[in-house]
């Protein structure tokens, strides 16, 4: 075992020093592979931007393979949403979504073409949008 672990003087009772302020919070967003979106992965405490970037690299860059990161001071971020602050209106918005048309369009197509022809034709649809 290292000598320091056996030979240090252990203090007792209350600490002699006064409480210290915490550094600033920075939010960290990582990109796992080039071309993918950046995703929030955690927070670091740092006194300035340079230190924040260094901590974020060492902390979040090392424990998960990633190619890029954004680090931003929390105080510089603005946000919206939750509670009474509704971002996505709760009214029926079928008209602006592909799935709002899917059943109608299908039924209407089948008045003109066979099921098989419609199936073949619809293979090219972007299914993720439904």
């Amino acid at each position: 075992m290292s000598k320091i672990r056996e030979q240090f003087q252990a203090g007792e009772g209350e600490l002699a020093s006064s409480p210290e302020a915490d550094p600033k919070a920075y939010e960290v967003f990582i990109q796992l592979t080039r071309g993918q979106p950046h995703v929030h992965t955690g927070t670091v405490d740092a006194v300035d931007d340079k230190m924040a970037l260094e901590y974020a690299r060492k902390h979040y860059g090392r424990d998960q393979a990633c190619v890029h990161m954004w680090v931003v001071a929390r105080e510089a971020m603005i946000s919206a949403g939750y509670g009474d602050d509704i971002i996505w209106p709760l009214t029926d918005q079928d008209y602006r979504l592909a799935r709002g048309y899917a059943a109608d369009v299908r039924r209407k197509w089948e008045q003109f073409r066979s099921k098989e022809d419609v199936d073949r034709y619809q293979k090219e649809d972007i299914k993720d949008a439904f």
Binding site: P19, A25, T43
Partner: peptide, 16 residues
């Protein structure tokens, strides 16, 4: 570090 950070946002400083 991550868990202290989570705790800080619940209202206690890391130093404390």
């Amino acid at each position: 570090q991550m868990l202290y950070r989570t705790s800080q946002d619940l209202g206690k400083s890391r130093d404390q």
